[in-house]
Nucleic acid binder design. Structure first.
Lengths: 334, 334
DNA sequence: ATGAAAGCGCTAACAC
DNA sequence: GTGTTAGCGCTTTCAT
């Protein structure tokens, strides 16, 4: 049987008070006499009454929900990010409404959905945002914070890991160990982060006098790195070191070298990764990598978002955090 | 500047039609004349109008949102599950409202939140549900589907992987390979799934004539398994085979054996896992395990939930799916 | 096919 | 401190 929901009017009637009395009891910081409060709470519990958030949203024009946009990609790389965001947002009394975005065509539909749900703000971990889409957020006065995405020609709120510093640290280690020839395994070309990491590596190698470092591409996944590397090594000489856009691919590289080319890391070749995922420190890999300061990033993202919800006209803010270098055992000693 | 949201009245006024005409245009399956529809759509686009889902929810009493309850644990083990659930639910026009539940004390607050948000249904991947909590869902007439949790003394909608069959298959392989002494590394005792897997293994070993198999405990994580195993092996003889409650711990076991005890898997000892996570097939591990039929599970969970939303008084349903045995290379040949 | 009017369950402003 | 009233932006009858 579909029982009708209990409303504040029902409670008011039974408790013998007005509806607004009930409403006040359930809102923090409103003054109600002890007697009324107790009576209301008692009858509410008895009747199983809970305030209807939907009705509240309609009138306060605050949904209490924040959209988090993931690509399934991003989710795979950092499952903890979502938990952390959820935790931080809960501290500010916000709920996470989840959206995924895997290819650019879905973007319009996604945005429609976001406007429709009247979310208080958006945190975007997915790839496909251009400055045109970002303008729409401004137009709909919906605050948005980008997580590890840099969108050129737009001044959006952003938190990100300092890829530049991290990658240079890694390359410095390789360079100091007297490596001469390099191979870069980059993430997919439609990922901003992958492109950024690749470009930093290319340019910095050039600065150090290493010219024309070849680049091959994977999809950030274990298998894609193995396949790309296998294909490459069949036709090209082996490099001294392989720079991978993320740890998952670095692990794939180490396994591929070991299984199909009898090359041991770090004895015969060096490999570096990026991200600092759990598996990077497993005994068989011990990758030298840069760990993203995930908790700082998530906290900053939420903090900025909350500020913008409070104060929408404030100027955009970018917070950059430096990752921590983890010296594993994947670089050959010179 | 905080611009006011455009409402259906605004559009109606500009387009020179009634508010209900606008409403009808934005609802599927309502008959509007072509002329009216075009006029409304045009002015709506021009004005940046989107229907307000909150107002719609209030009157239709359908929020279009489904709560998904995760533990951070579950999220780490199966990051894909959430993406899949989200995808499947989106096909039914439902959005995911995310909740996390890590310890039992948070349950009450969580439930308050769920009632408040008037979600259409709930999918629970987290551990701490007892039959008392489940009754609350019935009382609030909120359909709930449990994912891989069996709650005794309650007939809740459930989808789960056939742990029984899977674990017996794994143990059969070990037994046929002439292993005599076993060690079980179980997940935490407050996890239903961990307890179930442990009991199945204990009982089945007994059936096969293997008595008093010792059990040690981890938290499903890599490090916890290493620590527990190290402590155990210092004081006890080494078993022929180690049965792990999940792949992450199996990986930890393999690494611990290799690094600190010079025991190679599968040459010197056998290890089996459960879940079929990506890393279980990496070259250094190649664990013999059972892969959970994740896509089937998520689809079934969503299907059942949608049926219950349509038809709340239908009887509870349990769908059990058999995982697929993956024969890796972690069992010593006899 | 279209419009007028009622009302979903709450909050907010006001009077007492 | 408490009750009254007027909406929030829609959907849903019910006339026309």
């Amino acid at each position: 049987m579909k029982q009708k929901r209990v409303t504040s009017y029902d409670v008011a009637r039974v408790a013998g008070v007005s509806q607004s009395a009930v409403s006040r009891v359930f809102r923090p910081g409103f003054s109600v006499s002890k007697k009324t409060r107790e009576k209301v709470i008692a009858t509410a519990n008895e009747m199983g009454y809970r305030p209807n958030a939907i009705a509240r949203m309609l009138i306060t024009k605050q949904s209490g929900m924040v959209a988090v946009i993931l690509s399934s990609q991003a989710n795979l790389n950092y499952p903890e990010v979502l938990s952390e965001l959820n935790r931080e947002l809960a501290l500010h009394n916000k709920r996470v409404l989840l959206f995924t975005l895997d290819n650019a065509e879905e973007l319009d539909e996604l945005l429609e959905n976001i406007w429709t749900f009247q979310v208080d703000g958006v945190i975007a971990l997915a790839a496909h945002f251009d400055s045109k889409s970002l303008n729409l957020f401004a137009k709909h006065s919906t605050p948005i914070v980008l997580y590890n995405r840099h969108v050129p020609e737009s001044n959006a709120n952003t938190v990100c890991c300092n890829h530049d510093k991290g990658i240079k640290q890694l390359i410095d280690l390789l360079h100091e160990a007297n490596h001469k020839s390099y191979l870069i395994i980059s993430g997919p070309t439609d990922s901003d982060v992958a492109n950024e990491r690749r470009e930093i590596a290319e340019n910095y190698l050039q600065t150090l006098g290493v010219k024309d470092t070849p680049v091959i591409y994977g999809d950030y996944g274990y298998k894609s790195a193995r396949d790309a590397l296998k294909k490459w090594l069949k036709k090209h000489p082996k490099p001294d070191a392989i720079i991978c856009s993320n740890d998952a691919m670095a692990i794939g590289v180490i396994d591929e070298l070991k299984e199909n080319f009898c090359i041991k890391v770090p004895d015969d070749m060096s490999v570096v990764g990026f991200d600092g995922i759990n598996a990077s420190s497993w005994y068989n890999y011990q990758i030298t990598t840069v760990q993203q300061p995930m908790k700082q990033l998530t906290k900053a993202a939420v903090d900025i978002l909350m500020e913008r919800i409070e104060n929408p006209q404030a100027a955009a803010e970018v917070r950059v955090f430096t990752g921590s270098l983890i010296e594993g055992n994947s670089i050959k000693k010179s």
